Simulated assay, not measured.
Amino acid sequence: MLTRGDDYPIHQTPEPIAYAGSDRNFYDRYFFNGYSPDGSEFVAVAFGVYPALNVADAHVSIIRGNVQRCLHASRVLGMERMELSVGPVRIEVIEPLQKLKVILARAEGLACELTFEGRAFPIEEPRFTRRNGPRMFMDYTRLTQNVRVSGWIEVDGERSPVGAGWTGTRDRSWGIRPVGAPDAQPTPGGGLAGFFWQWTPINFDDRSVFFHVNADPDGKAWNTRAVILPDGAKAEGGVHSDRPRMEDVTLRQGTRHAERGTLRIPVEGGEAEVRLEPMGYPFLMRGIGYGGEWRHGALKGELAVGREDIDLASVDMAAPENWHIQAISHATLTAPGEPERRGIGVFEQLIAGPYKPYGL
């Protein structure tokens, strides 16, 4: 099965690009978010292809006021992985690893045209590999890059510019994650005991701070990293630490969402400290396909497009479908010998099952 990708020198196996190994859960995904300087407006995008499922999907979700408006699109992939569009959503790679554009042609009352331009060379996070019993649960690589965002967003006929002061984050990940419909037959010894995830890409005026942690239910980290990256840094630039700590976390009453946290990163001369304070309503990740009816890789037919509006003021934040969030957050950075800096970013959280350090 030859496709457009076969005319580019990007093969990783002896097979045509249409084939991605033998695991049905292989995926290849783009993620973007962007937010206004005061955090009052937020947009996020997910775009994925699932070669073994022969499905592609895309999601654009916008918060204005207390409503999260979501545009979902899904189609049959047709084994053509170089076609970066699903219905009204299109990705343009203007300059690889530096500048990309997301276009949502007007659909269901929503539209946007957004350019994401990197502030430094992307970081490569440690490879995520995790088994549940005999089954591979995760095995993927991810690059992450903080960005400046420009363009416009339209919601129900009201268009607003995106420009001065807008920042955000984009990432690219590929490999194996659970996608599509779950297996009908459970695997003895393959159950998930729990899943703990925090991710905090933060934008300051002249630098970015990245942190992530996956941990066992008892709090032992199995994948973690923090990076402090000055604007314009090249590959391997910045300060990297495999010993960061997220401390002083308190959860909002009755939820699994943190209302504050303090990130500590070992640096020369001591520790850098980032205090995170979520503000407003959290962004629900199901709005861009992380669970729900429009979950990543779900087969919806030849082409399906739909809108979903979520009233963030009334939704049950304690419900399992709302555990996975990105909380737009104020951030304060202090580091040895440097003045205090204030920034903005997201505090992504997913706590599924027990987590002893938080009493869950």
Results as ranks from 00 to 15, higher is better:
Thr224Leu: 14
Phe283Arg: 04
Ile351Asn: 01
Ala181Arg: 14
Gly343Leu: 05
Leu299Gln: 09
Val67Thr: 15
Gln198Ser: 07
Glu92Arg: 13
Phe196Asn: 00
Phe116Cys: 03
Leu2Pro: 01
Phe116Ser: 01
Val86Leu: 08
Leu53Asp: 05
His11Gly: 15
Gly254Cys: 09
Val60Ser: 01
Glu247Gln: 07
Val67Phe: 04
Ser329Ala: 14
Val49Pro: 01
Ile94Leu: 15
Arg119His: 07
Val213Tyr: 03
Phe283Ala: 02
Ala215Asp: 07
Glu117Phe: 09
Gly270Thr: 14
Ala18Phe: 07
Ala18Asp: 03
Arg24Cys: 07
Asp57Glu: 13
Ser22Trp: 13
Leu276Ile: 14
Asp28Pro: 06
Ala193Pro: 09
Gly65Cys: 09
Phe211Ile: 02
Gly48Met: 09
Asn214Ser: 13
Glu92Gln: 12
Gly232Met: 08
Arg295Glu: 11
Gly261Asn: 01
Thr13Asp: 15
Pro339Trp: 11
Gly237Ile: 10
Trp199Arg: 02
Glu125Pro: 00
Glu338Ile: 05
Leu143Glu: 12
Ala46Tyr: 11
Gly219Trp: 13
Ser85Asp: 08
Ser314His: 14
Ile94Phe: 07
His324Lys: 04
Arg245Phe: 05
Pro51Gly: 06
Trp197Gln: 10
Leu229Phe: 09
Gly65Gln: 10
Thr250Glu: 15
Leu104Pro: 00
Asp183Lys: 12
Gly109Asn: 10
Pro336Leu: 13
Arg260Pro: 00
